[in-house]
Amino acid sequence: MKLTYYPGCTLNTVAKQFDASAKKSALELGFEMDELSEWNCCGASFPLTPDNIMGLSAPTKVLAQARKAGDTVMTLCSVCYNVLKRTNKVIRDDTDRRDVVCGFIEEDYDGSIDVLHFLEVLRDRVGFEKVKEAVKRPLEGLKAGAYYGCMLLRPFEDMGIDNCEDPTIFEDLLKALGCEPVGFPNKIECCGSHLALGKDNEEIVTKLSGNVMQSAAGSGAELIVTSCPLCQYNLDGAQEKLEASMPGYRPVPIVYFTQILGLSLGQSETELGLDTSRWDARPLLKEKGI
């Protein structure tokens, strides 16, 4: 099985380990991620106002390119997934906007592609049972908190990957890998998102991400698994501040789910880039005997 893959800008830069671990794991699970030969940035945010047709052009271009390669396109980054999936729906259902956008980017595209997230591929195409069978190094005893954030889930009627108030896809994967998944109340709350950019927003981002981390730590998570580079960035930043301001707060490693997947499939810690995380997961893994 070969799947067209759209990495998006972040996975080629600060989240390379996300990209690499996914690609290697895919091969071990029997499919190949075939990166689009030509692609552009998706825009990193879906234009919420319907009159912002311009905002649809970049993701539509990506979709049109992908359609030429096949009938599905897979993403890893939650934000790319959100933007592409929602854009695709607009192009499919709203012929007025489709005509304007496609006219502008000079592509003939009708929204007939399926936008998939890597998690969906694991669940629906490979199957978690198969994943479980492929596990070489069960991550027994590892209490992993599954952090969904916003973009993977909402809005439900567009994304549809899982119940947006009570998702389990992450936990189900973690179970297949032998972990002990930890659900926590803030797993679907926002990390602070793009407020990371503003000059006066630091406090707010720290508070939001801090809430997520405290909620996770309070529920016993020893490690956080995420699917969004921006979430990872914000959570890491918040932990730095928590560590400085809150006596007794012990930061936990925040890793991409594909890293954890690769680990269970037998990849080495270095090739997974676990050594590049802000908070090193290796001592924890060692402690757990993994």
Partner: peptide, 8 residues
């Protein structure tokens, strides 16, 4: 920062 933070 991740590129997406800057772009968005």
């Amino acid at each position: 920062a991740p590129q997406q933070a800057i772009v968005s």
